[in-house]
Design a binder for these strands. Structure first.
Lengths: 216, 216
DNA sequence: CTTGACCTATTGTTGAACAACTGTTAGCCT
DNA sequence: AGGCTAACAGTTGTTCAACAATAGGTCAAG
């Protein structure tokens, strides 16, 4: 319940998560609430300071760079394995691409985001490491949090053509095993969305600083 | 307290962690104990099944492969950055190497292991991602757990010369920026210790299977 | 030997209580 | 006025006792 509220923006980044009040509101006990908080801390959705409570994580420009460093590291490593894989092992990747194209055809914004994330998750899955896949999922969750902020600012997904094309091209090149082509392609793809995210978050940080000085 | 007990082998892999009994023994309440368990689950030291409780993680051959996939992925990526870094940014790496050599000179087994882990941790730190560094630390913790099993079986550290030499060579090559030399060096270094760990764990798994069939 | 009904140990969750800590406010002194 | 200290209110950290829900084992009947 908490995760949902945070990811949908019902509870905004920076908001304190008061134990008594929220537990009461969610109809659960304080202890259970605290366990939930702990899980969200490990997801990176919540920050917790001793004796000062938990707040919804506030992702800034630094976090965006960090997150994309993770993505570059894991996805480029996965790419190397992917180009050397048999097509059968890339099936999940292809399925995600199909879903991506169908969602675009339906102009279904939400499914589009979902399929995009799914494609990259399944790329990382190619590495075959449960630990890396699990870790990437936590980062993916944080990307979702970023999206929940960005959603209104970034209209890329209303013109999904280039998004589809980039994934399609990348997948084709992977199937052909052309690592030297795929690498710069993925690097540029990630850099593009990193720039976009950074831009929006920088703007967001600016606004928040302004609001803070207004209030103070 | 729990982490210490697990890493020192005081509580052995596979042992159930009964809430009432252990909380009582540690002098804490069940709720606090459960929060501790949750933290250890995210460290990968403890496995938890709903309604069936928590047990100390039992690392098998699969886990060894998984862990070394993580190490290869992160450390090789870090290597690429490291060879392009200024010497000042590699200072922590050099310090760890120094400590490694001192520990070897003192024949201090424990410090040797610590310095070895520290060297690799600091290599990953070169990536400059708090998330990747944090994730690597959880994997490092799991390596410690593996070591706690292996400790009696693996006497490599009693002849630390090759271990020192490999780290020293790797560091020198990194300083000289020779990625093409450093890469296979690190790959071989990791492969060597993966083989060793896998061998010991395979043996361990064999024994446990034998014991289990003895008991049953 | 299987099936199914109990039984017990254990986990999941709750509610209330209190100690410990934080940030704030009020009052005091200089 | 400015700065220090002390009481304060709110919040978190932790404990305890209780009960519901689940899993695994035991025993009897077939």
């Amino acid at each position: 319940m908490l995760r949902k509220r945070i990811l949908t923006g019902a509870i905004r980044p920076g908001s304190p998560l008061r134990e008594v009040a929220l537990a009461r509101e969610l109809g659960i006990s304080r202890n259970t609430f605290r366990e939930a908080i702990q899980a969200l801390v490990f997801d990176g959705l919540v920050r917790h300071a001793p004796n000062r409570g938990a707040t919804v994580a506030r992702l800034g420009v630094d976090d965006a760079h960090d997150i994309y460093t993770v993505r570059r590291t894991l996805e480029l490593a996965a790419l190397e394995r992917a180009v050397a894989s048999r097509p059968a092992d890339l099936r999940p990747l292809g399925d995600a691409l199909g879903e991506l194209e169908r969602a675009a055809a339906d102009h279904d914004w939400e499914r589009l985001v979902e399929a995009d994330l799914c494609f990259h998750r399944r790329l990382v899955d190619v590495l075959g490491s449960a630990r890396l896949s699990g870790f990437f999922r936590t980062v993916e969750t944080q990307i979702r949090l970023a999206f929940s902020i960005v959603a209104y600012a970034d209209r890329e997904y209303e013109h999904p053509a280039p998004l589809i094309e980039e994934h399609r091209d990348l997948f084709d090149v992977i199937l052909r095993g052309q690592l030297d082509v795929a690498r710069p392609m993925l690097i540029e793809h990630l850099a593009k969305y990193e720039r976009r995210l950074v831009a929006v978050l920088a703007d967001h940080e600016g606004r928040q600083a302004a609001e803070a000085s207004d209030a103070g």
